[in-house]
Amino acid sequence: MVFFALPFLGLLWRVPWGDAWGLLTQRSSLDALRLSLVCSLSATAISVVLGVPLAWILGRVGFPGRGIVRALCVLSMVLPPVVGGVALFAAFGRRGMVGGPLYDWFDVRFAFTTKGVIMAETFVSMPFLVLTVEAALRGLDRRPEEAARTLGASRWYAFRRVTVPAIRPALVAGAVLAWARALGEFGATITFAGNLPGRTQTMPLAVYLALESDTGQALVLSLVLITVSFGVLVGLRDRWLGGDPGTLR
């Protein structure tokens, strides 16, 4: 436990408290904060929209090779993020498999754009939501859903009114985990989206670069990230997962 606590204590010890507010509210910090929030929330929204159907397919629909498809969907979770960035590069870069034609025909570019940051963050964070929701769907008692169907509810209506409320704790937990992961994304972002203040320089990137120029700023931004992450974990445990840990597993 001491091993886990000491790095944070060390950080607290080195933060220049006198200048902390000034360092936090300077232009480059605020830009990074804003960008981090926008990108991580966008990535979470996309993860929910795409991830819930994906989790449903993985959890409910039996098809051959499901294990492989599932592994593919969550691969980016265990991959070194820099490798994820390189893979994104190969697919969506300006000379990439998909990115090349997109650029040539529609002038759409992901590298060095905020779109690229959101894409990188979604890529690494969606598996957290998919896995959490899928586990909940599998562990769910299906009888209420079937009852709703026999009472004439459409499949979509039953999903929306019966299934979603039942898996809500898992959905919220998954979304929050995905959000926290997106907020902390570094490797894939700097590899794929580059680093430009105000456009692709999120907080972790700002921390990394500020280390060389302004250590105080790096420490203060690190502290903000830690506080957020810590708050998320404490909140997850007490509020959202509170009543029924069984649904999450």
Partner: peptide, 8 residues
């Protein structure tokens, strides 16, 4: 010029 990125 305004760069597209500040690399490491």
């Amino acid at each position: 010029p305004t760069p597209s990125s500040f690399e490491a």
